[in-house]
Structure formats: C-alpha cells, structure tokens
Amino acid sequence: MALSDADVQKQIKHMMAFIEQEANEKAEEIDAKAEEEFNLEKGRLVQHQRLKIMEYYERKEKQVELQKNIQSSNMLNQARLKALKFREDYVRDVLDEARRRLGQITKDVDSYKEVMKKLMVQGLLQLLENNVVIRIREKDQSVVNDILSAVTEEYKRISGKDVNLKVDSDTFLSAETCGGIDLLAQKGKIKINNTLESRLELIASQLVPEIRIALFGRNPNRKFND
C-alpha cells in the first residue's frame, strides 16, 4: 500500500525531529565536555599561577631574611670592631701614659744611673764584642761617665771578658727620647736599642694581654690571650 503525501511528510518530520534531538543531545554532550575540560584547564592554570606566586614570595621572603641576617651580622661586626678599637685605644692610652712617666725616672739621678748601668751591661752581654760605642742623649753624658768603670767591671765579672767602651760624642739620641742608650759594634753594623722607649715597647708587647684582662676582664670566647 503506497504512502500518501501526508504520511511521507509525517515520517520526514519525525526523522527530522529525531535527528534534531540527536544533534541537540550531541551538542549538549560536547558543551558539557568542553565545560569540563575548560574547568580542568582553568583549575590547572590557576594552581600553576598560585604555585608560581607562592614560589615568588617564598624567594622574596628568603631574600629579605638573608638581607636581614647580613645586615644584622654587619652591624654586630661593626659593634665588635668599635668595641675592639675602643679597647685598643684605651690600652694604647695606658701605654702612652707610661711613656710620659718614663721621663720621671731621669729626675732621680741615683736611680737613673742604676737603670743605665743595667741597660748597658745587658746590651754588652748581648753583643759580646771587644769594642762597643755607646750612643746616649747629650744631657746624659755626665751620668754615663760616672758609671762607665762600674759597667766594665760588672760586665767582666759576668762574662769574664774585657770591653773597651767609647761614648759617641758626635751623634746623640734625640732630645725627645726619655732616656737609655744605643750600643753599636762592628762600625755600626750591629746595634742594640736599649732606650727606655724600646724597653717599654718590649714589655708592653708581652704584657698587653694581661693589661687587657686587668682593664676589661677575660674574654670567655678567646682561646688564646696573645
């Protein structure tokens, strides 16, 4: 039985409706999948950017912490250096005051003669030379002349040797020198500096650690005192 035009049109419409429904369902499925993929990609991108931001601020925080530590260390070192400089300046002031007081020794002639005698004998025992030139301050000539014989006797008693002493009458120690002598042998090739200042420097180099402890106490962090 042949279909009428109306039946054909009806079937065509039915097929078109079915195709349209299938297309709509497929479109909805595609939209849903696209939405899902979009959300996943968006979440991935957001998470990625969040991690980048977190890493950026972590680096910044570490940099700030590092700069703070460096600054703190620098300030601490500067404070330590200032404290050390203050201590060294104070110790130096103590030594300078000791130098100024050296001049007091020469005012007591008898005591100064005894000091000069010991300085000369000590220098001679270091040289152990037969001929020695003594260089002194110009104003100490009378003091030295008074003790020359006693010095040679003391030297011979200790060393068993004779020595010919000559006072340099052409060249003198600086007038600013507190006192003491220079001893020269072998035409000036050998020299012993036994001025009061040189003796003070020698003693100071040995006693500075003890002076520091006396003035500021022992440093608990210092392993060695020199």
Rank of each mutant, 00 (worst) to 15 (best):
V91W: 00
N69E: 15
Q47H: 04
K26S: 12
L102Q: 03
L51N: 15
F216R: 13
S142G: 05
F86T: 14
T195G: 01
N145T: 15
A185H: 00
I70G: 00
D93A: 11
G188F: 01
V143P: 00
H48L: 13
Q63M: 13
Q9I: 02
R50W: 10
V121R: 00
A175R: 14
G160M: 03
E114P: 01
A23S: 15
L95A: 10
L207E: 09
S111Q: 12
S205W: 01
V132N: 01
L124M: 09
A214H: 08
G180S: 05
F224L: 14
L184A: 06
A98H: 03
K60H: 11
A204H: 05
Q67K: 12
E153D: 14
E88S: 10
E28K: 15
I211Q: 05
I134R: 01
N219M: 04
L196C: 11
K82D: 13
E29H: 09
P220S: 03
D110H: 07
E20H: 13
K42T: 13
D170M: 11
E197C: 00
L148G: 03
G43Y: 10
M1Y: 09
L3T: 06
V144D: 04
N74Y: 15
A150D: 12
I213M: 08
L200Y: 01
R212K: 12
S174T: 09
V144H: 04
L196E: 07
L84S: 09
K60C: 08
E97F: 09
E20Q: 14
R99H: 11
R218Y: 02
V121F: 05
K82V: 04
Q21V: 05
K68E: 12
R101L: 09
